[in-house]
Structure formats: C-alpha cells, structure tokens
Amino acid sequence: MNIFRLAADMTHLISILVLLLKIHATRSCRGISLKTQDLYALVFLFRYLDLFTRYISLYNTVMKLVFLGTSFSIIYFMRFHRVVRNTYDKEQDTFRSIFIVVPCAVLALLINQERSVLEILWTFSIYLEAVAILPQLVLLQRTQNIDNLTGNYVFLLGTYRGLYILNWIYRYLTEPHYRQWIVWLSGVLQTGLYVDFFYYYFLAWRNNQKLSLP
C-alpha cells in the first residue's frame, strides 16, 4: 500500500460520503443519475465476488463491504425513500445503460487474462467502471444550477481514478512483474472522461461562480 493508493481509496470513500450527505442533508437526489449508481453497484458486486474466495487484508475486506453497502443504500434512497425518490430527475436521466453494459460484457469475454467466471466478471467490472460515469455526466449537462455537493461528488470521483494512475506508476516502478494493461487502459480512459468536467469545475471555482456544463 503506497500513499497514492491510500489517497485514492480515501477520495473514493469521501466522494460516496459526500453523495450520502447530500441525500441526507437536502432530502434530495436532484442532479444524481440513478443509472450511474446502478452501474456502480453492478461494478462493486462483480468485482468483489472474491470476498468469499480470497483474503487480502482486513483493510481490503472492510473497504469492499463499505463500498457495497453504501452503493446499495444510495440506490435504496433514490428508488424507495418516500421523500428522496420524488426528487429524482427521471425524465432527464435518459442515457441508455444497455449501450455500455453489452459492449463491456462482450469485451470482457474477448479480452481477459484468464478464462474463468470470476476473472471474466472481474474484467467486466473494470471495463464497466471506466464508462459508468457517462449517464451522470450527461445528466449534469442537462441540470441547471448544479449544487455544490453534486459538483464536488463528481470531482472527487474523477480525482480518485486519477490518483490510482499515480499508484500504478509507483507500483510499476517499485514492484517486479507488476503489469496490468487492462486496468491501466481502462483507468486512463475513465480519468479522461472527466477532463471536460474538471475544466469547467476549475473555471467555476476560479471565477467564484456556480458550476454549469455547456
């Protein structure tokens, strides 16, 4: 565990806490894409199947359980909470998830490192995570007056994957046999999707204006 990896995981955790804070404090999930949240739950579910087969560390197990628990609780609030569910922008959240789920599944079947069910599902989760933010970015573009917590949530999510790239560079330089091009390419693509958002996020911050995407 290096400092970049720890910082990345903590940023990821904080992003989720910021989203939960938004939902609890404002009793609203306005501007949040349920499609992206569904995709993240799927990502965690398929990636962490090894919870039952492989023990890595207490840190690893606890974090996996936290990510699973929080992602499903967010979905619960957005779908079923009697107040929160009414604030969901269903009409605006129109991205068709099937257009990214199917290609990712096909890609995972074709390009993977081991022909086993667990490994293919794990690879699928890597591909899917790379593009799971797309419905959220589309929804943000359609949202007038993006609130601070929503903007910071997306910013932290992008930062988390960017920090993972530093972690991969560090591990590549310090650990022999550390080669993971499937993860690296997906991670770079994932971070790249945020470049546009980052640009407008910093512009709004510098000019002290509310964030909005053109």
Partner: peptide, 10 residues
Amino acid sequence: NVFKGTHDEL
C-alpha cells in the same frame, strides 16, 4: 500468476 497484481486493489 503475474497478472494477479491488481486484484489486491479496490
């Protein structure tokens, strides 16, 4: 297996 590396990541 050298590819198992990142399975220790989240």
